[in-house]
Simulated assay, not measured.
Amino acid sequence: MKLGVYNAILHDRTLPEAITVIAGLGLTGIELNSGGFLPATHIPTFDDILVSDTARDDFLGLFEGTGVSIAGLNCNGNPLHPTAAIGDRHAEDVRRSIRLAERLGQHRVVTMSGLPGGEPGVTQPSWIVNAWNSAALDVLDHQWRIAADFWRETDRLAADHDVKVALELHPQNLVFNAADIVKLVDLTGATNLGVELDASHLFWQQMDPVAVIRHLGPLIFHAAAKDVRINTAAAALYGVLDNRFRRLSPDEPRTNLGGDEWANEWPKDAAWDFVALGRGHDVAYWTEFLRALHEVDPDMLVNIEHEDVSLGRIEGLEVASAVLLEADAALSASLVGSA
């Protein structure tokens, strides 16, 4: 497998500086953000690369001799958002990322399935968490029609460009568990839609990432190495759907998600937290995570995503990469031993 880093945590550096950090960690891949919620910071010549072989070759030349190469593109966003200023732009980012991937010799684009509004004419998405009543199923029927139309067309584009689109199973999206991705593929007849297996969002939903990998098999296209710690005392009071977020004011540092939407502040004593690898699940667990991915594809791209706010950018990557490399070495040793 190819082990790397999703580059958003290194957006404070230039691309060559980010590559140097990743090489110093002993990793070999960088997953480049190409739009959506975050800008394509490390692809400043994006538009030129789409049309110019010289621009493409100049960009690829930045990786020569570094020991680090591109390990997929990432444009996580909401391409089905009912507000055009967000949904239309994020949808176009997905299409542009597919075209860019082909230009760069890449075959994986990571994104999210998106989430439409609950009925025609609304401006905000509506996430049905538990469809126990018939009205909720009516909303889902409406949303699935929108999603199927978009992803059917996008799948054709991806197939035309020899790209697999890997959807992160992320809550507040229509597709957030194993049943949903199977439903989307069945509805669309897709050949190039599958999953980016980010373990973190499965952990806090009380799902088992290893079981999900083995259940979905060839629908797993790509993976993110990101851990979660359940804080049992808070979870006992608030559950894993802990919703005590705080709205950040315009004079506070905050992340724009498109239009006039912004990321909120996490609860201070949250029921669960994103943590660096090893702080929620040990090396033995990550070894089995890699083993399951290896069973699907020995060349799977597995990239660290660092969102542990208790650790600095480099510190968090160092902690995570040490665990991931130890797990990979343990897997390799066990495969040799069983040969």
Results as ranks from 00 to 15, higher is better:
209 P>L: 06
220 I>Y: 05
204 W>R: 12
305 E>C: 05
275 V>A: 07
296 V>T: 12
195 V>R: 07
224 A>W: 09
278 G>P: 01
244 R>T: 03
203 F>E: 04
179 A>E: 11
295 E>N: 06
226 K>N: 00
306 H>Y: 02
273 D>T: 15
235 A>P: 03
234 A>Y: 03
235 A>R: 06
304 I>W: 05
221 F>H: 15
180 D>I: 02
234 A>G: 05
267 P>T: 14
181 I>Q: 08
224 A>K: 09
195 V>E: 02
297 D>K: 05
247 R>Q: 13
270 A>M: 02
192 N>H: 14
179 A>R: 10
210 V>D: 06
189 G>R: 13
182 V>P: 05
220 I>H: 08
232 T>L: 08
299 D>W: 06
187 L>Y: 09
184 L>R: 06
294 H>S: 13
225 A>F: 02
227 D>L: 12
226 K>D: 00
301 L>M: 14
228 V>E: 09
209 P>R: 07
273 D>P: 08
199 A>W: 00
210 V>P: 06
216 L>K: 03
235 A>M: 07
277 L>G: 09
267 P>G: 10
234 A>E: 12
215 H>L: 09
212 V>T: 14
245 F>H: 10
237 L>P: 05
257 L>N: 10
296 V>G: 04
186 D>H: 12
265 E>R: 13
217 G>D: 11
201 H>D: 06
248 L>A: 07
303 N>K: 01
271 A>Y: 03
246 R>T: 15
251 D>R: 00
269 D>W: 10
180 D>P: 00
241 L>I: 05
310 S>N: 06
198 D>Y: 00
247 R>H: 06
185 V>D: 08
302 V>H: 00
270 A>E: 09
181 I>S: 08
198 D>A: 05
217 G>H: 01
270 A>P: 06
283 V>C: 03
203 F>T: 07
216 L>E: 09
180 D>M: 03
293 L>M: 12
308 D>A: 03
219 L>D: 02
184 L>T: 07
257 L>H: 02
270 A>H: 05
259 G>C: 15
266 W>A: 14
226 K>Y: 00
237 L>N: 13
225 A>C: 02
292 A>L: 14
310 S>K: 02
296 V>Q: 07
212 V>K: 04
220 I>R: 08
262 W>D: 10
253 P>R: 09
182 V>Y: 04
291 R>G: 13
179 A>I: 08
264 N>H: 14
